[in-house]
Every structure is written in C-alpha cells, then in structure tokens.
Nucleic acid binder design. Structure first.
Length: 588
DNA sequence: AAAAAGATGAGGGCGGTT
DNA sequence: AACCGCCCTCATCTTTTT
C-alpha cells in the first residue's frame, strides 16, 4: 500500500484516495532537510521516468556499487521498475554476498521459483553471524551495509541514511541512526501518540490479582455489554506501528515506563488479534500487569498485512530488524506475478493471511468474467474481481488468471523457511490453517531482537501456544541460542512441525513438548526450573478463534471456549514470575 | 475416513460529510 | 456529534469429492 510510493520517481500513479494520510506520515519528503542525490527525482513526466540505463548509471557511478551486482539486480527487475526497488535488490545482493553463511532466499525474486536447501543452516554459531554481535568491530563494513540496508528499508532516502551513518559514526546502532534522522526531521511534536500509563496506585500484588481473577471472570460474564460504555479510551495509534516499526519514521518511541509490577524476570511477550471485540484488550492488559498493548500491522515488515496487539515487558530501544530484510511489496515478494498484474489492480500489499483459501471455482468464475475484453474490463467487472482478490488474497498468475497463494508463499510472507510446514503427514488444508494462525516472524523478531544483547549466552524459553514455532524461529534467526525450550502445543501436527524444524536446524538445546496448557501446573514448572534454572522469556499468542472478525459463529470474546485460554497464559506467567522472584531472593 | 470446496455476515475502525 | 459508506477480519459448519 504504502511502501512503493516511497519513490518519488514513480511518475504515474496519483494516489487518489485512501492512503495519502499514511504516505504523508511515512515517507520523509525528499525535499526535506536532506539534499537529494541528483536532480532527477521529480522529473516525472509521462512514461519511462526511470529507465534502466539511468538507474544503472546512478547505481554504479553515484553510489559506487559493483557493476555486476547492479546488472544482476536490474536483470531481476523489469526495466520499468522504480529506482528504489532495484537499489533494494542491489543492497540485498551485496549483503548476501558479504555474508559467509547462507541467507534465506534473497530479498527479492527467486523465492517462489527455487528452493534454497541450505537455508536451514545453523545461524546460531555466533561467529558466522555478524549481526548477532553488533558490538563486534571486526566486520564494520558489513555492519555498515546492513545498517544502510535497514535504513533504506525504513523508507529513508539514500541521502538521509548515508548522512546519518556519516554523522553518527560506525558504532551507531539502528536506533541511534533513526533517532538522528527523526530528530533532523522533527518540527512535528505530535508524535506522542503513545503515552505511558500513569503510575498511580494500582492493585499491587499478584496475590490480590489472583483472587480477583475469578471475580473478574464473573463480572465480565455478567456485564458484557455494560462494559462498552466504559470511558476507557480505545487507543489506536493511527498507522499501527507500536513504538515504531522499521518503516515508520516520525514516531519512534525509545522509552516507556513500565509499571513496576510488570518488570521481569521473566520477560514476557503476549500476542493476539488487534481488532478484538471491545473491552478485550483492556482485560488482557489489566491481567498482564497493566502493560499497555503495542499495536502493530505487519505490513510494515512484510508484503502482507497482519494487525496484531502485543503486550510485553521488553526494552524498546535498540531494536533491530531481522536480516535479510523480507520483500515488502507483492511485486518483490512474488515477482512472477508482475507480468500478469493488470494496471487497474492497484494493490501493493496483501491482506491478512487467514486460514482458508479460495476455491478453483471462484478463480474460474473470475477468469470467465474477464474473458472477451480487448482492453481493460468495464468498471463493474473490475470491481467484482478486485473485491474477490482482496477478500481471498488472490494474485495474478496468467492472463485473466488469478490464484490463491501457495503454501510456501505464505511461509515466505510470514517469515518462515520454505517447506517449514510441508510433509510429515500434514495436509494442505491444515498447512494453511496452521500458517494462518501463526506469528509474522519478522515483526516478532523485531521486538525480540533486544534480547540478543541481554542474553549473549542464549535463553531458556517457555513457549505457550507454540503453533508452528513462530517465536522459536524468530529467536533462532536472530542468532539467539535456544538452550531449553518448553513448548506447549495441543496440535500434534504443529508439534511435528516444530520438532522437525528443531532437528533440521541442528539445535543443541533441549526441546520439551507439552500438549495441554491447562495441565501445566506449578509442580511441573518447579521441575523445569530446578533442572535448568528458570525461564528467561515466556511467549505466547493465545487462541484468537473467539476474537477474530472472520468468525461468523462463535465470536464470543475472551470468555469464548478457546480464547479463554488466555487466562492460562496469565496463570502460568504469574506462576513463573513468582518462582523467579523467589529464586532471586533466595540467591541474595 | 480424510481432504477440499461451498455457504455463511456481523462488528468495528476510519474518513468523509452533514 | 451523528451519520453514512467503505473497508477489512489468525473462522466455522456443512456438503461434496477424493
């Protein structure tokens, strides 16, 4: 939706309606503080405003990239591709080239065509992973590349990024750099859409809270509708970027005051759908120590939208994005669709990846509806097709031919390795279901990235509602060693996925599976903690069935049959918290 | 028996206009 | 404030096909 407007060179499209607001926010206008490289930016008149030739010249001479990389990148793209996306590819290629180990199938292109068998290499052998140790000065040039790459992907202009790196020096972190640019761009002091909760007295002890627990349940049950008139403000940061996503620049928040009761150990990270029925997030927040949720749309991390809320007690400065950066437009993520994409389909991002896909009869209906027109079909046909494409996330795979995403494409869009859910006896239908219920890995990894410096030796992880292991994959890809993982997951198929991933990535730690979250009691936890000393992180996204808008039948809220398992997340987290506290005290 | 396809809206945010 | 129109949503149940 937004990213591809980042290039002022895109001469044609005039974004008529919806997204002007966001674009204004997201894209630092190139006419801002920073000088624009070359004067060609607003040449925009008619066709071919960025020819491959001029792009090549700029990349090779102005920006001093190796010619072979530039040619390779242009080859991957079409001639009419915007400068920015070709640049992105060049940077990716460079990053890949300068990185000793295999990266996930590159940034753009090739993803859907070729499998990358070595992708599952172990990234946790720290010395092979530059990013796992940012302080390490031996690989500054690589770090610099990555920083530039990261900033580019945040929609900063090349000029802004390089000036920032120049000024802040080779040691500066991404956060510092973005901070610098943000400060430079300032002028707007309206970025405080995220206020810290006031520190006034609140129910202090989890003792009390536990007692309130059942009471609260009953209250909710009875009040239901009454709650709606709660004057509790519905906080919905406009662009849904939480404390700042890599693409959102004007609003990076680097500090917050957590309620004292919320601070670790352990660190915790909770996730669920952002658009839950009214009052749900207030309840979740009140149980999770009054930490305010951070609402983020994964469209800032990926080519598909995914609006989710995250409640956690992690630090929020020093975040860094997962590398390699994933493709962030449909075109880059699914290059094969470019050829067939009609101009009247203006989508650049996919909608939320859900658990079901369109059937063949629907795509067939669409094909028939489109046949017989020389040029663009009439408006009513266009509307029908676009509506269905948006509803089912269809992409163009041929003339008049649309298709649902393949499983491996969904895996890629969500940040999982290709074939993550393939084989082992799982059906295609179930793959879509498991994937649709999962994390977006890049988004979660961005939040969890701060753990890398805190736990250089690795972590012990309690993963509730693990699903296909989104948190595990995120941590692993961040280069955070997984020492002991207790994974709670009811679905056997999902357990197999995680187990199989665990083995294929040559994990050195221990993986323990538990089926039922309700049977995980204090005794079991004691056992685990006695054997390896406690949990550093408790993650979980509890069932959204009864919260999600797609559910026609049982959208019953947090008290629904499945979604009420949230209370088990709280119960277990609170148990661990208490035990960790005791552990800490006895040590003193 | 298992997998795939088909049928099934309400709820709520948001921008725009009265 | 209130209203309208547009848009999107980690799905479930039943039927058909494999």
């Amino acid at each position: 939706m937004d990213d591809n407007a980042s290039n002022d060179e895109s001469c044609n499209i005039d974004w008529d309606t919806d997204d002007e607001r966001e674009i204004e926010n997201l894209v630092p206008s190139s006419s801002s503080i920073f000088p624009v490289p070359n004067g060609d930016v607003n040449a925009g008149s008619g066709e071919g405003c960025s020819s491959a030739v001029s792009t090549k010249v700029r990349l090779i001479y102005d920006m001093k990239f190796p010619e072979d990389l530039v040619l390779k990148a242009i080859e991957q793209h079409g001639e009419e591709d915007p400068f920015e996306s070709i640049l992105n590819t060049v940077l990716s290629l460079q990053a890949i080239q300068s990185s000793p180990e295999q990266q996930q199938c590159g940034n753009s292109g090739r993803c859907s065509s070729g499998y990358d068998d070595d992708f599952l290499d172990d990234l946790s052998d720290s010395d092979s992973w530059c990013g796992s140790n940012m302080a390490n000065t031996t690989c500054t040039s690589k770090v610099e590349d990555k920083r530039l790459l990261a900033l580019m992907n945040m929609d900063f202009s090349v000029a802004e990024a390089s000036i920032a790196i120049d000024r802040c020096g080779p040691e500066a972190s991404i956060a510092e750099l973005t901070d610098f640019i943000t400060a430079a761009q300032m002028a707007k002091a309206d970025e405080v859409f995220f206020k810290d909760p006031p520190d006034e007295s609140k129910s202090k002890h989890s003792e009390k809270k536990r007692k309130l627990y059942e009471l609260e349940m009953l209250k909710k049950r009875k009040n239901g509708a009454h709650l709606a008139e709660d004057k509790e403000t519905i906080r919905f940061p406009k662009p849904m970027v939480g404390f700042g996503a890599p693409t959102e620049v004007g609003s990076l928040v680097l500090h917050r005051n957590l309620p004292e009761e919320a601070t670790g150990p352990p660190y915790f990270y909770y996730e669920n759908v952002a658009l839950a029925p009214k009052g749900v997030w207030d309840t979740i927040s009140s149980f999770l120590y009054d930490v305010q949720p951070e609402f983020v749309d994964s469209k800032f991390f990926s080519a598909a939208a995914r609006k989710r809320g995250y409640v956690h007690n992690l630090p929020i400065d020093k975040r860094s994005p997962l590398l390699p950066l994933p493709p962030k437009t449909i075109h880059d993520a699914l290059p094969m669709t470019r050829r067939w994409w009609p101009s009247w389909d203006t989508r650049t991002k996919l909608n939320c990846l859900q658990t079901c896909i369109a059937s063949a009869t629907l795509t067939n209906r669409i094909r028939k509806a489109l046949e017989g027109y020389e040029n663009d079909p009439p408006m009513n046909v266009q509307k029908f097709v676009i509506d269905e494409c948006k509803k089912w996330n269809l992409v163009w795979v041929g003339r008049n031919k649309v298709a649902p995403l393949e499983c491996d494409e969904v895996e890629m869009l969500l940040g999982f390795p290709k074939n993550h859910t393939r084989g082992g006896g799982i059906s295609r239908t179930d793959r879509y279901k498991s994937l649709g219920n999962s994390f977006q890995v890049d988004t979660v990894a961005y939040h969890l990235s701060v753990l890398r410096d805190i736990f250089p030796g690795g972590i012990n992880l309690l993963s509730l509602f693990s699903g296909i292991g989104g948190a595990e994959v995120a941590l692993h890809r961040l280069g955070i060693r997984l020492k002991n993982v207790v994974s709670v997951e009811i679905s056997e198929a999902n357990q197999n996925v995680v187990r199989s991933w665990w083995e294929q990535t040559n994990q050195k730690g221990n993986l323990i599976h538990i089926a039922d979250v309700q049977k995980l009691n204090g005794d079991k936890l004691e056992e685990f903690m006695a054997s390896f000393g406690g949990f550093d992180l408790v993650v979980g996204g509890s069932p959204c069935n009864n919260l999600a808008g797609s559910n026609r039948h049982h959208r019953d809220g947090l008290e629904g049959e499945h979604s009420s398992l949230f209370y088990d997340y709280f119960r277990i987290l609170d148990l661990v918290k208490g035990m960790m506290r005791g552990q800490q005290q006895s040590r003193v």
